[in-house]
Write a protein that binds this DNA or RNA. Sequence first.
DNA 1: TGCCTAGAAATGTACGCACATTCAAGCTAT
DNA 2: ATAGCTTGAATGTGCGTACATTTCTAGGCA
Lengths: 258, 258
Amino acid sequence: MSGRGLERAGGQPLWKQLQHDLVRRLRAGEFADAFPGELVLVEDYQVSRHTVRQALSQLRADGVIVAERGRQPRVATAPEIRQPMGALYSLFSSVEASGLTQHSTVRALDIRADGVIASRLDLEGSSPLVYLERLRFAGDEPLALDRVWLPATLAEGLLEADFSHTSLYHELAERTGLRLDHGREDIRAVTPTAAERALLHCPADAAAFSINRVGHAQGRKVEWRHTLVRGDRFALSAEFSAHQGYRLTPATTTNPLG
Amino acid sequence: MSGRGLERAGGQPLWKQLQHDLVRRLRAGEFADAFPGELVLVEDYQVSRHTVRQALSQLRADGVIVAERGRQPRVATAPEIRQPMGALYSLFSSVEASGLTQHSTVRALDIRADGVIASRLDLEGSSPLVYLERLRFAGDEPLALDRVWLPATLAEGLLEADFSHTSLYHELAERTGLRLDHGREDIRAVTPTAAERALLHCPADAAAFSINRVGHAQGRKVEWRHTLVRGDRFALSAEFSAHQGYRLTPATTTNPLG
DNA sequence: TGCCTAGAAATGTACGCACATTCAAGCTAT
DNA sequence: ATAGCTTGAATGTGCGTACATTTCTAGGCA
């Protein structure tokens, strides 16, 4: 198809219109296999290569696409490398950095309904949810209690997964194609209940992080998560600068056993 | 002066050489009063406007300069607004957002020596340090216990400041010209001691955030800070996305009194 | 002296061309 | 069949032009 309409007298510059249209088509899944080259876009939109390049340069600056010499631009496989992010990613990567082995005990993996959680995922109260509860270990000691709810319509395929050694995000991407692209989390400092203390083998006076999190993928809320992390074994570590903003770093000292 | 030498057969693109040379001249203070316009640079470096614009667009993307239509590019004024950053900034801005008034009780403001802290600031063990200890209130209830050490050689002017209503960073910038440009912090979940609980009016079962932080300014470590924040009145809140990374948000629910 | 307007000047947008450099596919020869 | 080369195609770099839009300034007018 040629002659895609761009408002030539519109209020916005051509390259910006082109940029937005490309993002729109990208989200619609049009470029799943290959991103069109510059000359194709020139022909398609009937604009100069200069304009196309200006639009693409913006997309590249935003990390949406990756381009190299002599090679067609490709859609950036961003979420694979820069990852799920957030405090939880920091937690698990810091465990890995410390050399301790990670594994989980699956305490529950089933489908259930929960009106409160469902509403937090913008679902009807009776909507079925995949529920996964794990006790995560670093070395031989428990580190965190992790509970996740996902819409069953999206995540039903997870029921057959073995979560004792793989991560939720890996299975989610593998089995449903969903990758979290953004989210929001609240981190609180709490005192664990006696039951939680027993489960996590906490010392009596230990505090804990309580992390609530909503994860989005492709415009939908796909997970509501609550994680309780032993405060005596984990610290959030971050660097901040005017240039690079706030970045969690995995250099956290996960005490090698207590 | 015209004909500034750019290696035309050099390994690097012209625009990149130009970009780096402009940064170099900028740091040398050449553009203190005004940044040269595009046409001036074209004449100066004997390159096309396209090349100049490509270099400037990079500088703009890096936030070094600001350009507008019809107006000469200007050197970007130091990011005065997005300044302090980090969890502490998130703390105080969220209190403000909640509508509660903030004030502090200065428990100590003097000069003392501390070998451990001094070494953390890359100083000799006997180096004098300005020590500031405050109890920070949100509304009528205590929120955090804040202790800061700064090198006395840099921060001596702070001794006469009144910290009951102004922020440390404001006074620091005002009296010494220092602005933190980056830093690092560790955030832990801890159980406050009985003394700390009494001071902060904590409930007996409340946990707390313990934040350690090193702040840098102009290549030197200028503050070592320890802050203890009531866990029942504060939560860290963050948004993350592939596009924008990890950002602390001030939307935290500071419980309006307990 | 103060306000307004016209023009100059600067950046933003958009088009065109040419060549360099790199990647990938296809072909040839061993 | 595979290794190596050739060739085409795509992006990167660099130059030129023209016009639009905005800002600043200087001059005129009341």
